[in-house]
Amino acid sequence: MDEDTSGAGPAGAVGGDSSRPWQTLASGFEQARAREDSLDRLVEWPAQRALLGDVTGLAVLDAGCGNGAKIAQLAGDGAAASVGVDISGNFIAPPPRVELLEGDLSDLAAVPGLAGRRFDRILFLQSFGYAADPVRALQTAREMLTEDGFILLTRTQPVRYAIERSEQKGTSLGEEYFATESFAYRHRNWDEQVTLTKRPYTMSDLLNTFSAAGLWIEAAVEPQMPAEAAERYPHKQAVMDKYLGILMFKLRPLPGLQPRRDATVVG
């Protein structure tokens, strides 16, 4: 499930940062993302789309797809097969060439309808933090890639959560950045009655996870708000100035690690 960086948010998997509470919050999240001043609309999706490049004729899998709107857009942009997986099951009516499957991104190979399939692009758009075992989740995704495929993974800048916790608790930034205990919070913009948990992480945590999963970083991007949007929505630029925004990684299998040959290319 994608996350608007204007507020800490959940994603589409069981056993990681949140589980069943996300099914309650999914509707509120999608409404927030649809606002014209959503940072997802202004910053995240344009940068994600640029990293993906031309998807014409490709098979794309969105792990933690929310309601499926983004994977549907990729189908409209020419993807030959577009598959979305999310734990919430709150999907749009899928257009042609789009499959929306209810399932846990922690083990994509176990999701009904995905076994033995391969994809040119696999997306974890703000959803990766909700995998029960991050390394295994990425290893499984790596094995589902075609020979020239890659994973597009995005995560909120970890300093952002450290800043929030240090302000709330009166502690130092460094103390909270290197904290290891999960923390609970409620999302004021979606449903304050639902309590969520999140595992803190550092930049080294992310890099070591990629390496342990047999992946290397071909490109890393920290997108910023366009000047026109910053002028139009200064309150959103203020969020970016304070919390640093989002990290995006284009990940490929390390040389010598070949995808499984018993899988079937989707398309």
Rank of each mutant, 00 (worst) to 15 (best):
R41W: 02
D40C: 03
D86K: 08
D62W: 06
A34W: 05
P21M: 00
L145G: 09
S211K: 14
Y161I: 06
L74V: 03
R232K: 15
Q157F: 09
P234Y: 07
G174N: 09
W216L: 11
D40G: 12
A263H: 10
G15T: 07
G57E: 00
G7T: 13
D2E: 13
L257K: 13
G256T: 03
L52Q: 01
E143Y: 09
V221S: 14
L173I: 11
I246Y: 08
C65E: 07
E222P: 05
M144S: 02
S82V: 08
Q193W: 02
L145W: 14
D2K: 12
P21S: 02
D2L: 12
A93W: 04
D120M: 06
T140I: 12
Q31F: 06
K169M: 14
A263V: 11
G7N: 11
E99C: 04
R261Q: 14
G76E: 11
V98K: 10
W45C: 03
L52A: 14
L196V: 12
D107P: 02
V194K: 08
A47N: 03
V98Y: 01
I92G: 10
Q48E: 15
G64T: 01
A81F: 09
V98N: 04
G267S: 13
E222C: 05
V221I: 10
L247A: 02
P253F: 10
M1D: 12
A141F: 02
F150G: 06
R136D: 05
Y185R: 00
R41K: 15
R165Q: 01
A63H: 11
R121T: 00
P112A: 06
L207Y: 14
G15C: 06
R49H: 11
T202R: 08
E102R: 14
A69S: 00
V14P: 04
G116S: 09
A238D: 00
T195F: 09
S127P: 07
T264C: 07
I92N: 05
D54Q: 03
E181W: 04
T197S: 13
T264G: 01
A184R: 10
R20N: 12
E44T: 15
L153H: 09
A184E: 11
K250E: 05
T146S: 05
E102L: 07
F178E: 10
D191Y: 02
I71T: 09
Y130K: 00
F183D: 03
A26T: 05
A132I: 10
A11V: 00
A69I: 08
F119H: 07
Y233I: 01
L108M: 11
S211T: 14
D133K: 06
A75W: 08
A59M: 06
E143D: 13
R97G: 08
Q237V: 07
E3C: 15
F124R: 01
E36W: 02
D62K: 02
L251N: 08
P95W: 01
W190N: 10
I87H: 13
S18P: 08
